[in-house]
């Protein structure tokens, strides 16, 4: 299992090779890659800055992964989240989950992203022609958690 918080970009193919290494029992891998959009709430976004809470971030991602491991048979998983200054088109987040069968991979990947979005301490600031602003949390993200709490 790999959890990384980093300023540098990641390469999806390289991460897949690392994820699969020496694990012939893997039958499926589900991947999510989050990227920086160039618009938000009708405004152009020309850059983004991601802040986080060092120490708590790693701990919360580890906790989320442990919760996922209790629910599904996860053979390996990778979570990478970038911080610092990012530009439109940049990759922000990578979650990959390897399981024996595809159903668990889809579900666990979605679970990890849903909890990452609502409990991992990251904050986005957007830079627009109107100035800079902190992104507000979306209530729809909280709504999505209900699916896993039922």
């Amino acid at each position: 299992m790999k959890i990384a918080i980093q300023t540098e970009d990641f390469d999806v193919s390289t991460e897949l090779i690392l994820l699969r290494k020496d694990l012939p029992s893997i039958g499926g891998i589900n991947i999510f890659v989050g990227t920086v959009r160039d618009t938000h709430q009708g405004d152009d976004v020309h850059a983004m800055e991601l802040e986080h809470y060092p120490g708590m971030t790693e701990k919360s991602l580890k906790d989320i992964l442990e919760q996922a491991q209790k629910r599904w048979e996860i053979l390996n998983a990778t979570i990478i989240h970038r911080v610092g200054k990012l530009m439109p088109m940049d990759q922000i987040v990578f979650v990959a989950v390897a399981t024996p069968h595809r159903g668990d991979a889809y579900a666990a990947c979605e679970f990890i992203m849903d909890y990452l979005k609502t409990s991992a301490p990251f904050w986005k600031k957007e830079f627009t022609p109107q100035g800079e602003r902190w992104v507000d949390a979306r209530t729809s993200d909280d709504e999505r958690l209900k699916k896993w709490q039922a």
Partner: peptide, 10 residues
């Protein structure tokens, strides 16, 4: 003890 706004990563 840390105070912060609702998180917005991902």
């Amino acid at each position: 003890i840390a105070f912060f706004p609702p998180v917005t990563g991902g």
